[in-house]
């Protein structure tokens, strides 16, 4: 496992799933609404992204020149950033926004409470009701796809698989629940995967889970994906080599999201 890839997964999949959490859960949305802030995580040789809390919505975006930020948190290495996300308390050096550091340091800040609640929800094995199970699964599903995209863009083996995916949209869907897109683009011999939290208008290949239960079973490792394909619980259609290679990246996700 590469620490650099892990850092990208941590920012865009682990922290980035706050976006889905705030979008799907009213309590999370209300909590997120308490914060109006843009925090830049600048990791040396790693992700350089901005986490934005605005009007109850959360977004994890790549930093680009001119993006307004309230806090800039510098991390001297991917390893230290990973420790920070894993709650091992690694030091970050703020270069901007010293007076707003409560965002990170205050355990009761919206960021810290949301992160802790979301992590607990995603780790949960027993649920109070179907609604909670559904929310947990959708969060884990989102984290899995977001991680897959980062692994395909950063990890050496993941990039090998990504390079063999033809350009176009791959639609991933849980029937009746959610749909997202992995957009594959090619430029100057490089392949880029992009996660879009919306259904593709024209997917070149599709992977469709027949129910939230199937998605949960696969995410938890209780259902074998090949069994699901064999029994029609997962439908694969369209240009299959795109999915074959995507599945090879998917195999790497548990290493990074464990």
């Amino acid at each position: 496992m590469s620490t650099r890839t892990k850092a990208f997964v941590n920012f865009y999949a682990a922290i980035g799933t706050l976006q889905t959490y705030a979008a799907l859960d009213d309590n999370a949305k209300a909590l997120a609404a308490k914060q109006d802030i843009a925090v830049r995580f600048k990791v040396k040789d790693g992700p350089d992204g901005v986490l934005v809390f605005k009007g109850g919505a959360v977004k994890a975006l790549p930093y680009s020149e001119g993006t307004k930020t309230n806090i800039v948190l510098n991390c001297s290495s991917n390893e230290k950033f990973n420790d920070l996300v894993d709650g091992k308390g690694a030091a970050v050096i703020p270069s901007k926004g010293f007076f707003k550091l409560g965002f990170m340091l205050n355990k009761q800040s919206a960021f810290n409470v949301l992160t802790a609640e979301m992590a607990a929800l995603m780790r949960k094995k027993e649920f109070a009701d179907d609604k909670e199970m559904r929310l947990s699964t959708l969060l884990a599903f989102n984290a899995m796809i977001a991680a897959l995209v980062q692994i395909g863009n950063v990890d050496d083996i993941g990039r090998m698989s990504a390079a063999r995916i033809a350009a176009g949209d791959i639609g991933i869907e849980i029937t009746g629940e959610c749909a997202c897109t992995i957009r594959v683009t090619k430029q100057d011999g490089d392949t880029k995967l992009e996660y879009i939290a919306e259904k593709s208008p024209s997917p070149r290949a599709q992977m469709i889970f027949d129910s939230i239960g199937t998605a949960k079973g696969v995410i938890d490792g209780k259902l074998d994906a090949m069994y699901c394909i064999s029994t029609g619980k997962i439908a694969m259609l369209g240009f299959i080599p795109m999915l074959d290679n995507l599945n090879k990246i998917l195999n790497l996700v548990p290493k990074y999201l464990a």
Binding site: M226, Y227, I229, S230, T231, G232, A235
Partner: peptide, 24 residues
């Protein structure tokens, strides 16, 4: 088969590698 054989039918004769689309 699925209870005692991985994937039920594995490899190129199976629904997944055999690209049986849709499996139905």
């Amino acid at each position: 088969a699925i209870k005692v054989i991985p994937s039920g039918v594995y490899g190129h004769l199976g629904p997944a590698e055999g690209c049986m689309i849709p499996v139905a």
